[in-house]
Nucleic acid binder design. Structure first.
Lengths: 243, 243
DNA sequence: TAGTGGTCTAGACCACCGT
DNA sequence: CGGTGGTCTAGACCACTAA
């Protein structure tokens, strides 16, 4: 029977979608507990084992965090443990890295065009907020980021807010804009540093730098950030696990 | 009670270790089926659900592959599906990538020293086999690899064997040397191409290239390969998923 | 001590595969 | 059709946390 539909969807997978809808719709805030497994089982009229399988997969995908004896919580970028999930730059010696200091280089409004428009699913001409910043690790400048965000969500993001905030941008996006980053895709290339990049990073124009283009997605796989990072890699490296 | 041992180890986790020992010891060959869940449950005197949890985790870690209706199989690098698990270079346009052609540039014996010795846990002076090769994608040279391997395992690896073989090196290591790569760590930097690299890749000396240093591990987290890859990234990029 | 997630079991039934 | 993994249930008990 060619073309016959897959026609079967496991119960736990449907429960998973229901919980995801709750997360995307803000039924429970980041960091807050969701109902217990027993309560969810009653609510959805399935066994606790079925809820468990749904919750387990959501925890594996970093949407939820389980804590034995306490409950299950909505994942949040405010935890120390996840600070380096999206920042893969490491010292060459294996000393523990401290969270970098941020220096705002530029803030402006712009119109979507070209690559940023395409990757963010915006029509040319739609509003953008663009941020350029420098990341300084242990006194060493290491990354220049240019971050493009749809104004439809991030209009309120201005230099004052950026300067006031400590810690990761994704924490700010989550608490101030109700937009939680779920996953990201990065494309990494080698490039020659241009004048602005070189001077910000304390290098010479033309020195090799890593160019990391990132698209970050929120719920429903919606792209909401395009970021181009230029990484200085003479004392640090981009680490990756192949599993 | 400071220093008290963790003292509790779930049953499924112990079963997992037993199966891992079987895999590491070659009880079942790559690609071959392991016993059914029911059989394993009888053998280890636990319920099928407990075996299931152990096998599920091993499948998630790519040690096993489950196929509904058929059985559970030892993972192997010989499958098309896993060919690009360790090779993250992609075309900039999103055309599907075909498996690259390999050209052997150099083969030699050497003595472990410096970085390779340290990363492979070898004493200075122990034997190495070193391979340099070029990877050509769709007629475009894109990667120069220098691969260092402990002679204690790979002594038999020579130019004749390398030239005869088609497909991924890890497939060859698995079938010819009984050494299956489980995971790898990569450290990525930007560098200026040296003369040899530039000419192999069709670039100019000093052009920016990606330098990818990889240590690959087999069972028991034993490092058995150090590989330095120089990647040309003007038409391709290194892709990464942040999840 | 009450409540949460974590483990383990036993059994029923379903989906899928090869023959 | 028989055998495999996949789903779902119900229930018992364990480990951990907070009050």
């Amino acid at each position: 029977m060619p073309g016959s539909a897959p026609t079967f969807r496991p119960l736990y997978s449907q429960i998973k979608s229901l919980i995801m809808e709750g997360l995307a719709g803000g039924a429970w805030a980041p960091g807050a507990p969701i109902p217990s497994e027993a309560e969810l089982a009653r609510r959805y009229k399935v066994s606790q084992g079925t809820v468990r399988k749904a919750v387990e997969e959501l925890a594996q995908e970093h949407h939820l965090v389980r804590r034995q004896g306490r409950g299950t919580f909505v994942a949040t970028h405010a935890e120390e443990r996840t600070q380096f999930r999206f920042l893969r730059l490491c010292r060459d010696d294996d000393q523990p890295e401290t969270y970098p200091e941020t220096r705002l280089l530029e803030w402006r409004r712009a119109r979507a065009a070209g690559e940023a428009a395409r990757l963010l699913n915006l029509k040319p001409g739609e509003g953008l907020v663009v941020v350029r910043r420098l990341l300084v690790f242990d006194g060493e400048p290491a990354v220049v980021d240019e971050i493009s965000l749809p104004a439809s969500i991030f209009r309120r993001l201005d230099a004052e807010l950026l300067n006031r905030y400590r810690g990761s941008l994704y924490k700010l996006f989550e608490t101030e804009f109700g937009t939680r980053m779920i996953r990201a895709e990065e494309r990494i290339r080698a490039a020659a540093a241009d004048g602005a990049t070189a001077s910000a990073l304390g290098m010479r124009r033309g020195d090799p730098v890593l160019r990391v283009d990132r698209v970050a997605f929120t719920y429903a796989d919606r792209p909401v950030e395009f970021r181009r990072g230029m990484y200085r890699t003479d004392r640090r490296h981009y680490r990756n696990q192949l599993v």
